[in-house]
Design a protein around this nucleic acid. Structure first.
Lengths: 237, 237
DNA sequence: TCAAAAGTGTTTTCTCTACACCCATGT
DNA sequence: ACATGGGTGTAGAGAAAACACTTTTGA
């Protein structure tokens, strides 16, 4: 949700006189069962614009930067405000500052991307103006938000390739097959279960619990727990 | 250079009333011969603060975001203004928005990182208030700029590991040994020349010219040219 | 002719992949 | 018992590392 200025129509001189507005937006990913196949797929919540510009279109949750919040806090806050979600992973995605992203005033959006666990995601409040969408094949969104989502997806797939990101889409305890399903959903290809298991046990920071997931149709799989830190990469953020 | 507000002293209520200022800064890397060994090492230009806060300390080149520029253009522009440089590579690094980065007003800095070729770097204007420093072992800089440089270095090394970034630090034509020297300088370890050569010819986008670098002490090495695109990674920026 | 870097070839080692196989459970 | 996913073992392909070796120049 880009902040709207005090003018209602675009005006070149006014536009140039105003400083660029600063907004925070968030791309929130969660795993939900596909409506058709039932297999887990990527979803994200969007909010409907209730005013111009782009009134009626769907957009990423967001808002202006509150004075008392760091960028990270601001992202977490209006994520909670609009969707009621608390992310298990939250990282800066990119700062979008093109001149014509918003028709009236110039807006610079600092965009974060988040991942929430399924239990959280189910509790997310849905309403007339807040709804979940499948991440692939989105309709046209407000502003440049389609591009932003595409970029977030690209980065998610990139991190997935050699990182321990998948765990943040799962609950506290999970089976290795569930991790594999996340990879397959996000990367959109099948993965050999045997080799995948080995890769995980070598590199990723997980530990076996002594619990097993009961209630399945077949041999109960062992449950694992993620032991890695949330920020296993960069030194600054 | 963070933009200074109209107040001279920090004042809580004023601080909260003002919107956060938006600034652009740039970390510029170039290859220069080490003063001691003569081997190429990483350097970056800094500008001296001529006003409070942090008056007298060195800082990253930067300034406020001009209305008519995209973020990328703004970075390129004040890079040219302060150092006279035209980058061969320019990419967004991160948006830094901590609450207390600047003492008086809250400043959100969108930081870019750039690489310039040695011929360019030699033409860079140095003065009392603009000087080149070795990227490792920097003194204390203004604001949080030490952290920013560290993060830029981390990202540079990361990209170097499996990318075609090194070429942007070199001229149009280069020997394979020069590319290897860049890798060794940035990653700070030796690399087997034979294996390195093979890796490059497989993956990286370079083509052999029919020229050789004359004037060395030994067998003249063949010159190569970079043929890859500048943006071989993300879809958005 | 010798030193040193350019460039090539070869062996060894490691990692990734494919796939055969056993295990444990619900039906 | 048997079908099915959980879990282990292993042989082959391909990439990476280590290093011996030839080539070409300046001194």
């Amino acid at each position: 949700m880009e902040r709207q200025p005090f003018v209602s129509a675009a005006n070149v001189s006014e536009r140039l006189a105003q400083p660029p507005a600063l907004a925070i937006s968030t791309v929130i990913f969660a795993l939900r069962p596909s409506a058709t196949s039932g297999r887990p797929t990527l979803w994200l919540p969007l909010v409907r614009r209730i005013r111009e510009p782009f009134k009626g279109l769907w957009a990423l949750p967001g808002g202006p930067l509150a004075q008392a919040d760091s960028l990270q806090d601001a992202a977490a806050r209006n994520l909670a405000d609009t969707t009621g979600l608390a992310p298990s992973y939250l990282e800066q995605l990119y700062a979008f500052g093109g001149l014509h992203r918003s028709p009236a005033q110039r807006v610079v959006s600092i965009v974060y991307w988040a991942m929430v666990q399924p239990t959280e995601a189910d509790m997310a409040l849905e309403s007339e103006n807040v709804k979940w969408f499948r991440a692939d094949g989105l309709e046209t969104l407000a502003f440049d938000h389609n591009q932003i989502v595409d970029y977030a997806l690209w980065r998610l797939r990139n991190k997935m390739a050699y990182g321990s990101i998948a765990y943040h889409l799962l609950g506290e305890k999970f089976t290795l097959a569930q991790v594999r399903e996340v990879y397959e959903a996000v990367l959109d290809r099948t993965v050999d279960p045997a080799n995948f298991r080995r890769q995980l046990k070598q590199t990723a920071h997980i530990e076996a619990t002594d619990e097993y997931l009961q209630g399945g149709k077949h041999r109960p799989p062992r449950l694992y727990r993620y032991t890695g830190t949330t920020a296993e990469d960069s030194p600054v953020p």
